[in-house]
Structure formats: structure tokens, C-alpha cells
Design a protein around this nucleic acid. Structure first.
Length: 265
DNA sequence: ATGCCTAACACCGTTAGA
């Protein structure tokens, strides 16, 4: 049994109390973090390791940044999404988790922070998001050839369908909901990746993000943008999935909350 | 139509987030 989770912490240093409390209570085996917003050398490494996790990160100053935590040892395989050597934003980290015997099949996990892309009429931002998604599709296709247990987890900044949005009208011009964004999302999923949440909850409103503004959290006006995407070999093992709202209820929370999936690995 | 709220950086406001 292996629980893999993803949590956009919106600053790791600010959110360490939330993260450590949640690691103790939820006890995930593997965690993908996004928006750590710090350099690698600024990671609170000892504090995380003292809770029993190996930690790797691709950080940058002040913005973006992703990390991977695992109870079992892991080996970092990629520190950037292939396909554009000029892209310097810290948004991708891929590792192989060495799950111990008797479940000794390797588990490949990537922590993904897909570009937001707003505003959509900006000369750079939305095109950058779409190019990044095209690179993700190519790499995800290559990964499938390995026929491994793969979990691509993260803040994908995509609302796959209208049911993943609290107010379609309010989000009509948002990069997370555009036709071009959703078309690429389906192209990615249709390669053979299973959206873990929708595999077990095909309908219904299951948000992972609530804006700090406009009373979105108390009104439950959110978005489903954090996803765990499973290769066929991972999807075959899917036992349970959930969105843990507890960290969002705390003081000074992230605007996201963790999503997790349990695999019979 | 805009700001709402939060974090980081560096300034006491601006940029970015989604």
C-alpha cells in the first residue's frame, strides 16, 4: 500500500507548520509539493527529514518551485521538463521511488507546477502555458513506453470540465478554463493517464483550491486544479482517493489543499 | 468594472498568483 499526495503549499517556509502537522496526521508515503517559493539551499531540510522523509527539490528565488518527499528512498531522474532548454522556471521534478520488498516494483513520481497562463491576452503567459502543456504531452507519452507505475501529481492549473469550476461565467476568460487548455488536457489524459479523482468520483464538485479573496472558502466556491494522473499500471492499483480539506481550515492556510491517492503497490 | 487576499522583494508599493 502506497499513498501518493500532492499539495501546493504557496510558500514552503510559511507553511511548514501546516505541512508537518499534515505529514504526521495523514502520513502519506510520497508527497509532491508545489510553489515552495525558495531556493534549494533555503529548504527546511532537517525538519522534513526528521519526520522520516527524503526530500528533493527544484527551487528558485521567490517564485514557483517543486519538491518531492518520500519515506522510501528515491532517485531523482529529471529536474526539468524536457523539450525546452531555455525554460528556467522551476516547475518539474521527476524521481523513482524505491518501494521496499515485498512490493518492490519501482514507482515513478513527478511533481508538476504547470504555468498559470493568465492573463490570456498577455503576449507571453498563455502561449507559454500552452507550449508547456505540449512538452508535457510529449514527455508523458515517452514515459508510458516504460510501462511503469507512474504518478504525475501537481498543480496543473487546469479545470478539466465545467463541473470543476464554482462559477463558469466568472472563470470564462481565465487561462485555466480555455478551450485550448482543455483540449491539451484531454490530449494528455487520452494518452492513457487516469485522473485518479474522477476514476472513483466520476461526477460531483470536488475542489482543491479556493481563492483567498471574496470569501471563496466559507462559500465553498473553488476550483479542481490539483490532480493525480496515473499511468495504466498505476491506475490498476488505485484503491482510494481523496481531497483532505483539513489543512485549508487552519490559520494562514495555503489557498490549495492536498489531494491523495492510495495504490495497492 | 474593479477589488477582494496573500507572499516575496524590496519599498513602504509592485508583481504574481488563479
Amino acid at each position: 500500500m502506497l499513498t501518493v499526495a500532492s499539495f501546493n503549499v504557496n510558500s514552503l517556509r510559511v507553511r511548514m507548520p501546516h505541512l508537518t502537522g499534515w505529514l504526521k496526521s495523514a502520513a502519506p508515503d510520497v508527497v509532491c509539493l508545489q510553489e515552495i517559493k525558495c531556493l534549494d539551499e533555503e529548504l527546511p531540510r532537517m525538519e522534513i527529514e526528521s519526520l522520516g522523509y527524503q526530500v528533493s527539490a527544484v527551487g528558485m528565488k521567490a517564485r514557483h518551485g517543486v519538491a518531492l518527499l518520500s519515506r522510501a528512498k528515491h532517485t531523482v531522474e529529471l529536474r526539468a521538463l524536457p523539450g525546452d532548454d531555455t525554460d528556467e522556471q522551476a516547475r518539474y521534478l521527476e524521481a523513482v521511488i524505491h518501494v521496499p520488498a515485498p512490493h518492490d516494483r519501482p514507482v515513478r513520481v513527478a511533481s508538476i507546477y504547470l504555468p498559470n497562463g493568465n492573463p490570456i491576452d498577455d503576449a507571453e503567459k498563455f502561449p507559454y502555458k500552452l507550449r508547456w502543456m505540449d512538452r508535457l504531452i510529449r514527455h508523458a507519452r515517452d514515459l508510458l513506453k516504460r510501462e511503469e507505475i507512474v504518478v504525475l501529481g501537481g498543480d496543473f492549473n487546469v479545470c478539466p470540465s465545467d463541473e470543476d469550476v464554482f462559477d463558469v461565467h466568472a472563470m470564462a476568460d481565465d487561462a485555466l478554463c480555455q478551450v485550448e487548455t482543455r483540449q491539451r488536457w484531454r490530449e494528455f489524459a487520452n494518452l492513457g493517464y487516469v485522473d485518479a479523482l474522477r476514476a472513483l468520483y466520476p461526477s460531483g464538485r470536488h475542489y482543491t483550491f479556493w481563492d483567498y479573496q471574496a470569501m471563496r472558502w466559507p462559500r465553498n466556491e473553488g476550483l479542481r486544479i490539483d490532480h493525480l494522473m496515473l499511468s495504466p499500471q498505476a491506475a490498476d492499483l488505485l484503491e482510494a482517493v481523496g481531497i483532505d480539506k483539513e489543512p485549508r481550515k487552519l490559520d494562514r492556510p495555503s489557498d490549495h489543499t492536498p489531494i491523495w491517492a492510495r495504490l495497492a503497490a
